[in-house]
C-alpha cells in the first residue's frame, strides 16, 4: 500500500488516536534512554537496540540486566522470550502486512499497539492503513525519544509519575474490547488472563503471556465448559 493511500484511508479520528499512542511511546522512549544511560550504559546500546530490535519490553529487560552487571547472553535470552508473542501476531496480521518486499519492513514494525489498532478495524484496507501508520509513527517517535532521553540522562527516568504505566494497558484494553464482545473469544481471553496471572510470580517475563494461549482450547466452545478444564 503506497504511503499516500495510507493517509487517505485513515480517517481523522483514527489518525489522532494513533498519533496519541505514538506520542506516549515517545515519552516511554525518553525514559528508556535515560534509564539506560543513567544505569551506566553507553548511549549506543539503547539506541542500537531501539533500531534493530524495536520491541520495548525486551529492550527494558535487556538494559536492566546488563546495567545491573548481568550476562549479556542472559539479557538476550530474556529478550527473546518476551518477544515470542510476535509469532502469533505475525500469523494474525500477515494479510494486513501484505506480500513481497513489504513483509520485511512490515514485520519489523510489528508492535502490540499497531497490531491492536489493526485488529480493531473492520475492512482490510483500514487495517492496513492503521497497521502501517501506527508502525511507522511508533518507530519514529520511539527512536527519537530514546536518543533525547539518552542525551538528557537522568532528567526523566520515572514515567510512572505521569501515569504512563497505566495508560499503556488502557490503550490495549480499549483496542481489544470490541473483539471481546464475541463470546467465544471472550471466554478464551478470560481463561488466558487467569493462567497468565497465576503463572506470573513463578515464571520469567514473557512466558506467562505466552501460556495464556492455552485459553484458545476454549475457543469456539460457545460457553465455558468448566468440567472439562484441564488441571493446571
Amino acid at each position: 500500500m503506497p504511503m499516500r493511500s495510507i493517509w487517505r484511508t485513515l480517517d481523522r479520528g483514527l489518525a489522532r488516536d494513533i498519533g496519541l499512542v505514538c506520542l506516549a511511546d515517545g515519552v516511554v522512549g525518553l525514559s528508556y534512554g535515560a534509564i539506560s544511560v543513567g544505569g551506566g550504559l553507553p548511549l549506543w546500546v539503547p539506541v542500537l537496540l531501539s533500531i534493530v530490535v524495536f520491541a520495548g519490553a525486551s529492550q527494558f529487560l535487556f538494559v536492566g540486566i546488563v546495567a545491573a552487571g548481568g550476562s549479556p547472553i542472559a539479557a538476550m535470552a530474556a529478550g527473546l522470550l518476551v518477544n515470542t508473542r510476535h509469532i502469533a501476531f505475525g500469523l494474525a496480521v500477515s494479510d494486513v502486512i501484505g506480500s513481497g518486499w513489504r513483509r520485511w519492513p512490515g514485520s519489523h514494525l510489528m508492535t502490540d499497539e499497531n497490531v491492536a489498532f489493526a485488529m480493531r478495524q473492520d475492512e482490510l484496507k483500514q487495517r492496513r492503513a492503521a497497521y502501517w501508520a501506527g508502525g511507522i509513527g511508533i518507530f519514529v517517535c520511539w527512536n527519537i525519544g530514546v536518543v533525547i532521553g539518552g542525551l538528557a540522562g537522568s532528567v526523566i527516568t520515572d514515567t510512572d509519575v505521569f501515569g504512563l504505566d497505566a495508560a499503556f494497558p488502557a490503550v490495549l484494553l480499549a483496542l481489544v474490547l470490541p473483539a471481546l464482545r464475541d463470546r467465544s473469544t471472550r471466554t478464551a481471553a478470560l481463561v488466558g488472563v487467569v493462567i497468565a496471572l497465576i503463572a506470573t510470580p513463578f515464571l520469567p517475563a514473557g512466558l506467562p503471556v505466552l501460556l495464556a494461549l492455552a485459553g484458545m482450547l476454549f475457543y469456539r466452545a460457545g460457553k465455558p465448559a468448566l468440567e472439562e478444564a484441564p488441571n493446571e
Binding site: A92, A166, V176
Partner: peptide
C-alpha cells in the same frame, strides 16, 4: 485473530496488575 486477542488481553492483565513477579500496587 482470536489468538492474537487472547495474547493482547493477557498482556493488558499482566501489565496492569503485576510488576516483575509481584503485584503492581493500587494506582496503576
Amino acid at each position: 485473530a482470536a489468538a492474537a486477542i487472547v495474547l493482547l488481553t493477557a498482556l493488558v492483565a499482566t501489565s496492569a496488575l503485576t510488576e516483575g513477579h509481584g503485584p503492581a500496587g493500587i494506582a496503576r
